[in-house]
Design a protein around this nucleic acid. Structure first.
Lengths: 343, 343
DNA sequence: ATTCATTTTTTACGCGCGTAAAGAATTATT
DNA sequence: AATAATTCTTTACGCGCGTAAAAAATGAAT
């Protein structure tokens, strides 16, 4: 380690006693050379600390080893967690992940796709903004770059979608709540940004009908990604008007529920499942903070590791298949109920 | 828009009636060519949707237009917010930001610095893990790449540090709390990962001495980045033992406080500043969720936009100065107190 | 030892662009 | 209009590597 500085692959090849094309082959795929050759090269790498110039490498390669990861909103710890898993798996598989966040802004999502295109990635894992996404731009992008959508689906775009089964979330919470107390009213944004929200509402309506119960959907105003604030204000409105049809609230997602619970606390409503409580509140997602609300939030949890794991594996398969699947794959993972103190 | 596809700069130059070297000059700095020339080039870009191959561009450039951004923990919305601002400013200034998260793991921080080195970035904004960071690796990196540290400082490393003034956080909360009730006890992790924590403890001790009050430091076990859980468990321990020296708790940071508050709720302790409360709890950071705790958290807020803004500006100056400052700069921004319901 | 399949070496070209130098063209200044 | 300053064009080379093709070397199998 630390002999003299190596300037390029030519030099590295000659000093390590292997021809340059073979060294080049090694860096493209270490398994494509004989084991003894590989060992010699790796010994030399250790000794001289050489790495090929990534810009020169990627210039002529038909396909780079880059993988793009795009999430809609990084300040949501949900995505922070997903990204951690995905990044690790990509690196283990020999890819270089590049992380991008749209930060809730459609223009930025478009710009990211533009940037990504010029990175010539082998594949992209894209969690779109949803309703606000520029669908034309995404469609065009998916035609050029092998893409797996995750978290929120857009019909027909990308070669595959991996996400959670919204019906499974709602069926479990509705079933549990209506079995153990008054049937739930559904609390959501009037114009949700995310398509999952619509699926959850429909699942709620369907489940209530199936159980022979009367559904109540409470829709509140607000746009953007400040869900906690929207939930809190909406809850205050509803509580003030005493407009709750039942004593049980099922929030579309945890971030709304976090706001809802904070409003309940402020307005002096007791939430819980014990004697003397005024309300029960439950929700969906198992947001990293849902454990720390007051009271802790009963919720249906994403199978985080399955979703992120399967998304990555699907992308790898897609890359190996040359970037196209015969038919678009859709994989949904079931949720599991997490009973805590709020319902 | 959408004539025929342009393959390279040569072709783009001839079709737009400008010589290739001039086009190249334009892409390096649009202001380096005459306004009329710039207009012609930009018209052609619109028309043919051409973008230079970034790999070929960066191969020979002494300095790329890349900027690396490294944060210790993306699942913390605090960093999500900082990253949003920094990314935007970089793009506006014509740079390409690349985002990396160490996810709390020192090995990953090292790997990121390695990757970053081969990206040959013009500069790097690095928020290190802190105590766990491989200081030797960071030092070596900073020697090779122009780096501005932010959020948490490591003595002498990088050309500059931009962060918040921990003393200002603590002095304001301690002053406020001791003026309006019992003096605070300080609640923190025994072995904090972040150097800011130590500065805050020292500031607490100093302030208490200055005010002629007896300090009490409550140190709890736990390691890693699951601060809420650590805070919750520590609080339960302390509450069970009735080991609180005063009725006022000052948490080192908001994530610990979120755990503390959840434990108080579970154990039946009333937190607040009104009649009949058992405890007051305050903290530092103005974490995005601190508004939604029950009760809402009184805290000292980072000047988020100043910190991120000044970090970016410092890096730009550093890049323009050729990557080195005469002397290492340290800029600290004052906090401001945010009074909510918990104290 | 001979044959054959596999792997490596040799040789050579090209990718798309940065960049340098010298001369031509365009603008600004008087 | 003449001169000077700026900007652009022409020409040409090189960066570090991918990759193709043919020849040589290596290893396995008979």
């Amino acid at each position: 380690m630390g002999e003299r500085k190596i300037r390029n692959m030519e030099e590295f090849a000659s000093i390590s006693g292997i021809s340059r094309p073979t060294v080049s082959k090694y860096f493209n795929d270490p398994n494509s050379v004989r084991a003894s050759t590989r060992a010699r090269i790796e010994a030399a790498i250790d000794q001289y600390d050489y790495r090929p110039n990534i810009y020169a490498m990627n210039q002529n390669r038909q396909l780079t080893k880059n993988i793009g990861i795009v999430v809609p909103y990084l300040a949501d710890p949900f995505f922070g967690e997903i990204v951690r898993v995905i990044e690790r798996r990509c690196i283990e598989a020999g890819y270089s992940p590049s992380l991008f966040s749209s930060h809730g802004a459609p223009e930025q999502e478009r710009d990211i796709l533009d940037t990504l295109r010029s990175l010539k990635p082998a594949g992209v894992l894209l969690a779109p903004l949803g309703r606000l996404s520029d669908k034309t731009a995404i469609e065009a992008f998916c035609r050029d770059v092998p893409t797996v959508l995750f978290d929120s689906n857009i019909d027909g775009m990308g070669e595959a979608f991996v996400g959670s089964d919204n019906y499974s979330f709602v069926s479990q919470t509705v079933e549990y709540l209506s079995r153990t107390g008054e049937p739930p009213s559904f609390f959501e944004m009037k114009h949700p940004a995310n398509p999952n929200a619509n699926k959850r509402r429909r699942a709620y309506l369907d489940m209530m009908e199936r159980l022979g119960l009367e559904p109540h959907v409470l829709q509140i105003d607000g746009s953007g990604w400040a869900f906690e604030d929207i939930g809190r204000k909406g809850a205050h409105d509803i509580l003030k008007k005493k407009a709750l049809p039942t004593d049980t609230i099922l929030c579309s997602n945890d971030r709304l529920a976090i706001g809802f619970l904070s409003a309940c606390f402020e307005a002096g409503y007791k939430v819980g499942r014990t004697h003397g409580r005024d309300l029960r509140v439950a929700s969906h997602d198992d947001h990293p903070f849902s454990r720390y609300t007051c009271p802790s939030l009963t919720t249906a949890a994403h199978d985080y590791s399955s979703v992120s794991g399967h998304a990555v594996e699907t992308l790898f398969r897609l890359i190996e298949s040359g970037g196209r699947f015969q038919t678009r794959e859709e994989t949904l993972f079931a949720a599991h109920l997490i009973m805590r103190d709020s319902a």
